[in-house]
Write a protein that binds this DNA or RNA. Structure first.
Lengths: 176, 176
DNA sequence: GTCTATATTTGGATAGAC
DNA sequence: GTCTATCCAAATATAGAC
């Protein structure tokens, strides 16, 4: 298939941006078109409706998840450090997309949760393989969720080294 | 001062409800008035504008935070178990209010973050006193944030016992 | 204190020119 | 493929009756 027109990508980037920084309420077609540098008519040529725009963003995130999980599994620092580090990585495309879709899922588009659940499961699987103990893996992903929660509220990220030290302690301590 | 009219409380409860279940977008004056069983005019008598309604909810949460922190510090199970348990307590008034205000803070009312930051600091202080190690306390509050994140997306809460066991392990292991 | 209009603005979507 | 113009519905807010 032909490469998707650049305008489509610009629209999705603008939509993401507004969702993350100002929330679902502010992500109107007018605002998205403005930020993308196209007219509302132009936007609606690429995405026939607001629902189609939402679907476009969810599909884009789904693709990014596949790539991110592969990167995570191949990361030299290991899956745990990769996950915890990138959870507050506000500038990376993947994390912005994740936060944007979370915004939609909490709001008027609950079906967007599917993509988020997929990411959660993939993360848990990869972390479980790395740390062995499934309970520790679940806790690590929960910590990552906590970091996302704070990031979405604009708070400062926690110290990565501190968290890794705690996870190391969990991993090296035998269960009761 | 005289007791606040019951209608005020009903309006705040309705606002909270809609924010938590359907998001900021759906929390229109019409929808809130409907759910509270009053007319839009009636609502606007008590809260002169949407901003005033938001301020009312933030102030209400601020009061609830004070009470919750006192309960947490006095909890027989201890602050850690109390915090982690109530983080997925979708039915309690405090937690619904917290999620509702988080919804506002992520959206068009960033000043609502003040109340959330207050809660976060109070939780961290109380947990630090209980576990000793500030790093462990920060991790516990991060786990609690993660649970809130999931709850706000409608996912099932994690196993409390599993988390407490992990925290116990952290507490009883000397730092490297 | 609470209601029923009603004014004003904004958001989503269509039609049709270029 | 992108724009302008326009329609319709929804959202905030006001005025004034009860």
């Amino acid at each position: 298939m032909p490469p998707p027109p650049a305008a489509r990508a610009k629209v999705l980037a603008a939509f993401t941006e507004i969702l993350v920084t100002t929330g679902e309420r502010a992500a109107t077609l007018d605002a998205v078109a403005d930020r993308a540098g196209v007219s509302k008519g132009g936007l609606l040529y690429h995405f026939g409706s607001k629902d189609a725009l939402v679907d476009g963003l969810v599909e884009h995130l789904t693709e990014l998840i596949t790539a991110d999980v592969a990167t995570m599994r191949a990361a030299p620092e290991g899956p745990v450090a990769y996950l915890l580090r990138t959870s507050s990585d506000v500038d990376a495309e993947f994390d912005r997309s994740y936060l944007a879709v979370a915004e939609l899922a909490r709001g008027a588009y609950p079906h967007a949760r599917g993509a988020l659940d997929t990411a959660e499961r993939a993360w848990t699987d990869a972390v479980t393989e790395a740390v062995g103990d499934p309970a520790v893996a679940r806790a690590v992903v929960l910590l990552s969720d906590g970091i996302y929660h704070r990031t979405s509220l604009g708070a400062a990220p926690p110290e990565l080294d501190e968290l890794l030290e705690l996870v190391r302690r969990l991993g090296s301590t035998p269960a009761a």
